[in-house]
Design a binder for these strands. Structure first.
Length: 724
RNA sequence: GGACGAUUAGCUCAGUUGGUUAGAGCGCCUCGUUUACACCGAGGAGGUCGCAGGUUCGAAUCCUGCAUCGUCCACCA
């Protein structure tokens, strides 16, 4: 078919052209800066926020990467040596849960398979999910360099993680200790504070009488009567006159019949409940602190699966928490020790990944000291080494860092980075760890054998994510290797980072101090926090809530360009986006308009000798001059908008210019003029519109570009228009 | 309990440092099939800018309070 015939087609069909255009970009190596012209000097690097391999991408990913692609394509056209490095994240618990869910369909648990077999299953899942995600990215038109695709469990990445761990350990920032952590009985692991969510629930406040050794009773109020089996004290406020005479006395713990001291602690609020608190140091972070301050016993009564353990009276052993609660309340009632029950609104801590109620549990875990690292992270933003957009987030950032607590980095799951920690088989309590990337060659000083076992725990998935901007560029933490690493030297630090709001502390903050700690430089200059995509009802789009939409569905209906258009149109600020399909429909119409206006211009060209030069003849009429002037303005406007992450506004300005100023006014006017100059201007303005619009709707503009007369390369590597 | 953001046309949203008649898209109404496009063109209706105060010559925009919604943070048993 000749060009002429295709141009006679009055409607633009994206589905036919997008695949073919993308293949052309790939074939020509357009996304790989090494394959681009050598004149490009200054680099511009972005490390893609790696999606979790928990399935497929949702609208949030589509938005995030569309906006990043706009930035990337503009910078590429502006002559930067652009590297957008893509990746996917192993996503520890999240992925493990997905695979466990699959297993459960066949009535299997991960324990039935064993660690090795289970890990194999997850790797299979990773291949499948990873492929789906890459396909989605490509369909959307993402111009990242796929030849550099990284995965957070790549061999070299593992090296980076282990070296980072060792670095922190040797610096004394990583320690192991018995602390109360958030324990998820279902995932069977500790999780960090940031992975806990709170659910409002109607519950009760139980008032329980504890008999005093000297006679009489003291009443405590609690939301968790079942943990009383592990009580080791009763605490009151130091200046609470009701109780001052009891401090130093003993109470008898009902059911267990054990003497526990009555103590005074500053954390108590005398206005809550009765002003007296039952202290369970092994199952509450607050009580743990009280326990430390007063040298109390730490009695664990609940096991890793959330059941009453062997320390509890026999009739309780093996019971679930809820069963135990009912039994205890019943028993207290029959003993006459239950004073009353009040209604109480509770915010219940649940696991972010599976929704199971969190069990605060004393446990031997690994922690990263946060105080100094937090200060480093805060300083980088304060000094404007890292710019946070929108600026409002700085306050949240500083507030969070000010109160940051040590980070529990060990997880009792199987999918993730094994910690580089070894124990001798004779050291059953694991009191003498060896920290080493590989299995130690030395002999155990205790038993003289070489029988080292690697610790079973893996690291929190965010520990590896924290290294992302430099680990993806080949950084390993090995000075000799890193010195020779070309990508790391050329492209680090990165220039830009885009992320969703909900992982700001989980990820962004941690990348900032990690970057400074390991490379001496901040990992990126600017971080843009984009809006969250909500559905029409204003609910967050989420697969687990069933409120998500698969971007592929929209792309298959309207095309990738139209989908990008619709999302970008709505991306006007931080305000959450209520996703609305009608903007994608507008996008489709716009592309049709673009196609037809282009046809008009190309088919009516009077001269085939046009160059890129701006028409300056003194024969230009006032409409010619006017549209040229407006073109200059819109170039400036677009640059200004994009430099401030005003994506939606920039697209709306371009839309207005193209449709109204160019098509409705100038193009109509041009029909009345037969001058060669007007024909030149039409061509010149169209050509620059294609350039301006390319970052937003790359496929259609690239497609039309090839019908322009004369010899020229691909639009994706064309130059960005000049403002005047 | 703190913090941040939002509240503008029927719907989804713009409105950059306060400055004439508050804008866009979609929807709605009227007209129009002139050889780029009906996935179109020309025109039109529609807003006491959440509420109540205040600052100012002038407020959608700045300040205070309140209401509703959303998000994040927090050890109240």
């Amino acid at each position: 078919m000749s060009t002429k015939n295709i141009l006679e087609n009055t409607s633009y069909n994206p589905l036919e052209v997008e695949k073919q255009i993308y293949a052309t970009w790939l074939k020509k190596g357009c996304f790989n800066p090494d394959k681009q012209s050598q004149t490009k000097k200054k680099s511009f690097t972005i490390a893609m926020a790696p999606p979790n391999i928990t399935g497929s991408l949702h609208m949030g990913h589509a938005l995030e990467n569309t906006l990043t692609d706009i930035v990337v394509r503009q910078k590429r056209m502006q002559g930067y040596k652009v590297l957008w490095i893509p990746g996917i994240d192993h996503a520890g618990i999240a992925t493990q849960n997905v695979v466990e869910k699959e297993l459960r369909k066949g009535n299997l648990s991960r324990f039935d398979l064993g660690r090795e077999k289970f890990e194999e299953r997850v790797w299979q899942w990773k291949e499948k999910s990873g492929d789906t995600i890459l396909e989605q990215f490509k369909t959307l038109g993402i111009s990242a360099d796929w030849s550099r695709l990284r995965f957070t469990l790549d061999k070299t990445y593992q090296k980076a993680v282990q070296n980072a761990f060792i670095h922190y350990y040797e610096k004394g920032l990583i320690y192991r200790g018995n602390r109360v952590v958030n324990w998820c009985p279902r995932c069977h692991t500790s999780i960090s504070d940031l992975e806990v969510e709170y659910k409002e629930e109607k519950s009760s406040l139980w008032y329980i009488k504890y008999p005093l050794k000297r006679g009489g009773c003291i009443t405590v109020a609690t939301t968790r009567p079942e943990t009383m089996l592990g009580d080791t004290a009763i605490a009151v406020a130091p200046k609470d006159k009701r109780y001052t005479n009891l401090v130093g006395e003993y109470a008898i713990l009902p059911i267990v019949n054990k003497e526990i001291p009555i103590i005074a602690d500053k954390i108590l609020d005398k206005n809550f409940g009765t002003g007296a608190l039952k202290v369970t140091p092994a199952h509450s972070p607050v009580d743990f602190e009280i326990g430390q301050r007063h040298n109390l016993e730490f009695v664990s009564v609940i096991d890793d699966h959330g059941r009453f353990n062997a320390i509890t009276p026999e009739r309780y052993q093996g019971l679930k928490m809820t069963e135990g609660r009912a039994k205890i309340v019943e028993e207290l009632k029959s003993l006459g020790l239950l004073e009353k029950i009040e209604d109480y609104d509770l915010s219940l801590p649940v696991c972010m990944r599976c929704g199971t109620e969190i069990q605060p549990q004393i446990s031997n875990q690994w922690f990263l000291k946060m105080k100094d690292l937090g200060a480093v992270a805060a300083k980088a933003v304060k000094n404007k080494e890292v710019q946070i957009v929108p600026k409002n987030f700085e306050k949240t950032y500083f507030d969070w860092l000010k109160n940051v607590k040590d980070w529990c980095i060990s997880r009792q799951i199987w999918w993730g980075h094994r910690m580089p920690v070894w124990y001798c088989n004779c050291d059953t309590n694991q009191l003498h760890p060896m920290i080493s990337t590989n299995k130690p060659k030395s002999k155990c000083p205790e038993c003289g054998k070489n029988d080292w076992l690697q610790i079973e725990d893996v690291l929190d998935t965010w520990f590896s994510s924290a290294l992302w901007p430099f680990a993806v560029l080949g950084w390993t933490g090995d000075k000799v290797v890193d010195k020779k690493c070309r990508d790391f030297k050329t492209y680090y630090p990165t220039n830009y980072m885009t992320s969703a709001r909900d992982i700001f502390h989980l990820w962004i903050t941690r990348m900032i101090y990690s970057g400074i700690e390991f490379t001496g430089k901040v990992p990126f200059e600017k971080v843009y926090i984009h809006a969250t995509v909500m559905n029409k009802e204003g609910k967050r789009m989420s697969k687990s809530l069933g409120t998500g939409i698969d971007p592929l569905l929209l792309i298959n209906t309207y095309g990738a360009d139209a989908t990008r258009f619709g999302l970008t149109w709505q991306a006007t600020g931080v305000q959450d986006i209520r996703f609305n399909e009608e903007f994608i429909v507008s996008g489709k119409k716009f592309l049709n308009k673009l196609w037809n206006a282009s046809r008009f211009v190309i088919l009516n060209l009077k001269d085939k000798t046009y160059t890129d030069k701006k028409p300056t003849s003194d024969k230009l009429n006032k409409y010619d001059k006017q549209i040229l002037k407006k073109l200059g303005k819109i170039v400036k406007q677009t640059e200004a908008d994009l430099s401030k992450e005003r994506f939606g506004q920039s697209l709306q300005h371009l839309y207005q210019f193209f449709w109204h100023d160019f098509c409705d006014l100038y193009l109509e006017q041009s029909k009345k003029s037969s001058s060669l100059e007007t024909s030149h201007v039409l061509y010149y303005v169209l050509k620059n519109c294609l350039r301006l619009l390319h970052p937003y709707v790359p496929f259609a503009t690239e497609y039309i570009w090839q019908f322009l007369p004369g010899k020229h390369g691909l639009l994706i590597t064309e130059s960005w228009p000049k403002a005047s």
